[in-house]
Design a protein around this nucleic acid. Sequence first.
DNA 1: ATAGACCTGTGC
DNA 2: GCACAGGTCTAT
Length: 280
Amino acid sequence: MPELPEVEIVRRGLQKELVGDAIVHVKVLRKDSIGYPSPGEFAKKVTGHTFNNFGRRGKYLIIQLNSKAQLIVHLRMSGRLLLVKKQVQAAPFLRVRFSLKSKRELRFEDMRVFGRIWYIPPNMSSDEIIPALSTLGTEPVGLTGKTLRELFKDKAQTIKSALMDQRLIAGIGNIYADESLFKARINPLRKAGEIKQDKLERLAETIEVVLSQAIDLGGSSVRNYVDSDGINGNYQHSAWVYGRSGKPCRICGSIITRVKIAGRSSHFCPYCQELSKNAL
DNA sequence: ATAGACCTGTGC
DNA sequence: GCACAGGTCTAT
């Protein structure tokens, strides 16, 4: 599911509802979903904590508990965090259940089991338990062409894979990389280090516009994504290119193309994002 | 840079 | 059957 907008929406939903609530019982239904500590210890360690704050870094949800402990969640492809009354019927892919003092449950559902939850004890840093956290790049806020220039300087990789590289910018995934490149009229196959400054200025702006618009629309629901109340997002209905291969470009009517870049399906308009028009 | 692994499902 | 799915990791 989730890229930055979806994680941010979940974060906001939980922040509004859960600060001050407490975890009274934890049940791990699928051991693979636990990143740290061992699945056997997880429930014991997490039980009894109170939720203090819900933050986000890239696609990671960072939950501050009392006594300086943390819960960190990455939803990967199909993870969901749902806040429900405890009498609500459990879904087939329920992996971890947090029973709360308020008689509600925070449920981690994850069809594909790629998602992870880590408990960070007070005496440890999140960076030592999740090494990728310490290598995350900048949050995509206040981006400028100059920032992108520095990030992409000398990069021989395609701009598509550079945008999805979490060590450069944190939070952009397959959908919003394609969407941002379309709006900036940049071909996803262009080498990151060879893009002219004026296009980088445009890209810096379109990234922020696309992400904030996605948040306004409740995120993208391709398959599994729902917010913490179980509601689908709507960005996918107004996507420019993502998931639209074979359909006409909303600007020029050309047929949207799909190619593999860095192992991921990439969607673009062969006219609006023509390679030759993009040469430096 | 590309492929394969990790999982489970949906749609042709 | 086969291809594909909001992500990341590791190996070649």
